[in-house]
């Protein structure tokens, strides 16, 4: 099911960014598999009750890939996929970066990087304070981890042993101006998270079974270490001429490019 969902997300994302003339198609494609696995296999959510108090929380901290979140929510039944074509349009609710206003299923509006993990830590701390078992998932970009606030929250979550908090980092190795390693070196990335008190799993971020296995944290109130999943991904994944190209952080696909891209993506 998650494979089909990922294909649908990719088709939506390509069409939304092409029609809307919006940026970040590469970022959205790189996390399409992560989102599909989360929403198909991992998160306990109910599209009929988007505000259900005991739902798992999901924070899309890399809010610039908002098109992918909107697409997965629509495909999961939170709202009608027909409205996705309004993405980036005048008068629409579907802004380029994630906004919760008017969109069922969005737990947090994001867009400025480094906000999601502190809020996620708050959600996770609150669950434990109330004796509840919801899990909190935060999806970050690797470039986003340049932000100091990410590490403030990482230190907090490690110290307070927020074992039901999961940070998934979409490690596509590219950020706005080039590679993450050339910009501000992240490696040894796993060791950084471990030294902050997290347990770390490194997986192929397009391998659905591996993603599901590592993101599915058991609901054990006694769990001590928050989990970080370093999902090694390819920016622009699924469209050969977009893969590993910084250009597609910015450029929307032309109608002709959209056609070629859709031909490469599975039809589920």
């Amino acid at each position: 099911m998650s494979r089909r969902l990922a294909d649908a997300v990719r088709r939506h994302v390509l069409t939304m960014t092409s029609v809307g003339r919006s940026s970040h198609v590469g970022s959205a494609l790189s996390c399409a598999d992560i989102l599909a696995v989360l929403y198909a296999e991992v998160l306990r959510v109910d599209p009929e009750q988007p505000h259900w108090a005991d739902r798992d929380r999901f924070v899309m901290s890399k809010g610039h890939a908002g098109a992918a979140l909107y697409a997965v929510l629509a495909e999961r039944g939170f709202f009608d996929p027909a409205v996705l074509h309004r993405h980036y349009q005048n008068g629409s609710y579907l802004s380029g970066h994630v906004s919760h206003v008017g969109i069922p299923g969005v737990d947090l509006s994001t867009g400025s990087l480094g906000h999601g993990l502190p809020v996620g830590a708050g959600l996770a701390w609150r669950a434990r304070q109330m004796g509840r078992e919801w899990r909190t998932y935060v999806l970050l970009g690797d470039g986003e981890c340049d932000e100091g606030s990410v590490w403030e929250a990482a230190m907090f979550a490690g110290h307070h042993e927020l074992g039901l908090l999961v940070a998934v980092v979409d490690c596509n190795g590219l950020q706005s101006m080039g590679t993450t390693e050339d910009t501000l070196r992240l490696e040894p990335f796993a060791a950084k998270w471990e030294s902050f008190g997290w347990e770390v799993a490194e997986v192929d971020g397009h391998d659905h079974e591996a993603l599901a296995a590592t993101m599915r944290v058991p609901r054990e109130p006694g769990r001590a270490r928050p989990r970080c999943v370093l999902a090694r991904t390819v920016k622009g994944k699924g469209v050969s001429f977009m893969e590993n190209q910084v250009l597609w952080h910015y450029r929307p696909p032309s109608p002709e490019e959209l056609e070629r891209a859709l031909a490469e993506v599975g039809t589920g």
Binding site: V119, G122, L123, A127, S149, E152, A153, M155
Partner: peptide, 19 residues
């Protein structure tokens, strides 16, 4: 929250969003 005001404000938002 530690000497970490961004973390404090984010934590506060998260806790408040959960009641």
């Amino acid at each position: 929250a530690g000497v970490a005001e961004q973390n404090m404000a984010g934590l506060a938002a998260g806790i408040a969003l959960a009641g």
